[in-house]
Simulated scan of single mutants.
Amino acid sequence: MIADHEKGYFTEETSAEVVSARNNSCDNVRLRNCVNILVKHIHAAVKEMEPTQDEWLKAIMFLTETGHTCNDWRQEFILLSDTMGVSMLVDAINNRKPTGASESTVLGPFHVADAPELPMGSNICLDGKGEPMMVRGRILDTSGKPISGAKIDVWQANDEGFYDVQQKGIQPDFNLRGVFRTGEDGSYCFRGVKPKFYPIPDDGPVGKLLGALGRHPYRPAHFHYILQAEGFEMLITHIFDPDDPYINSDAVFGVKKSLMAKFQLVDAPEQFAGSSFDEPFYLVEHDFVLVKE
């Protein structure tokens, strides 16, 4: 027996309304509303594009190939979401911050749990390769007070644009990764190397789509951070090099102006003679502001 609200003949003009009406018996209101919103906009898009049967089949085969590319270590649908800006949009909606708070960005696929906790100021570069760099700053609340005991989980690509998990047997495990905790003054400091831009995986259907759209697959050089402190919201974010050639065209739209920090070359002997470096190095200084729960 079909309920009255489920009745209705499908026409080009009423397509979305008829499909949505069939979902009205769904007890999960959130699910029903979300599906009906998708139906509304997908039908509107199809009506605007007016695809041929062959074009629509190609679209379905693209999604099929995307699914076939997913495995235990690669999620091609997340890559598709990233490159279409949807991941960043979801992140923005779920991380609306008050004025003055540090902005978030995407986590990325290369975070590794259980990275070693290190003394403040340690060098996270285990193989000694790349141009040395010092990164420092403070972790503050929105009133400007330092946050002690904040956990700082950092990781980065090397000077060739690869993470340790991408080069097993070449890079040491946990290379360019570390966890630090702030003291009473909220400051943090660690040593690493100057990161390099790198491409997202572009050998699958998403990469082919980017190529067809005339887009490159590169992300600008950056550091990753996960910041946590008792009584504060967790912050997942990056620091970007503003002079990177891809800073204005990040393939996954993760760059925000507030997350750029100058990668300053310290090369005068009198500047690094008294530091922990015995050669020129890059200095990055950036503070983070966390929001109370």
Rank of each mutant, 00 (worst) to 15 (best):
residue 197 F to P: 06
residue 157 A to N: 14
residue 220 P to A: 05
residue 152 I to H: 06
residue 88 M to Q: 14
residue 253 F to H: 08
residue 159 D to E: 15
residue 252 V to Y: 02
residue 266 V to Y: 01
residue 33 N to D: 15
residue 74 R to A: 12
residue 15 S to R: 14
residue 264 Q to C: 12
residue 103 E to C: 10
residue 242 P to N: 03
residue 282 Y to L: 06
residue 138 R to D: 05
residue 22 R to N: 11
residue 290 L to C: 06
residue 153 D to T: 10
residue 132 P to C: 12
residue 1 M to V: 11
residue 125 C to E: 02
residue 6 E to A: 10
residue 26 C to I: 12
residue 290 L to R: 00
residue 14 T to F: 09
residue 141 D to W: 02
residue 207 G to M: 03
residue 139 I to D: 00
residue 28 N to F: 07
residue 242 P to L: 03
residue 203 D to F: 11
residue 154 V to P: 01
residue 203 D to W: 12
residue 127 D to P: 11
residue 271 Q to R: 05
residue 56 W to A: 12
residue 222 H to N: 14
residue 228 Q to P: 02
residue 98 P to M: 04
residue 277 F to I: 04
residue 86 V to Y: 09
residue 172 P to L: 09
residue 257 K to A: 11
residue 102 S to Y: 00
residue 221 A to K: 01
residue 233 E to I: 05
residue 210 L to V: 01
residue 286 H to K: 15
residue 212 A to G: 12
residue 94 N to W: 11
residue 208 K to W: 14
residue 72 D to M: 13
residue 256 K to I: 04
residue 230 E to H: 07
residue 246 Y to F: 11
residue 157 A to F: 05
residue 34 C to Y: 08
residue 72 D to R: 13
residue 117 E to F: 08
residue 274 G to E: 05
residue 74 R to D: 13
residue 228 Q to H: 06
residue 3 A to K: 12
residue 264 Q to E: 15
residue 269 P to S: 06
residue 226 I to A: 04
residue 6 E to Q: 14
residue 207 G to A: 06
residue 77 F to R: 06
residue 120 M to Q: 13
residue 173 D to R: 14
residue 280 P to D: 07
residue 268 A to L: 08
residue 289 V to Q: 04
residue 80 L to E: 01
residue 88 M to H: 07
residue 193 V to R: 01
residue 96 R to M: 15
residue 247 I to G: 02
residue 11 T to R: 13
residue 54 D to P: 06
residue 264 Q to V: 11
residue 177 R to G: 07
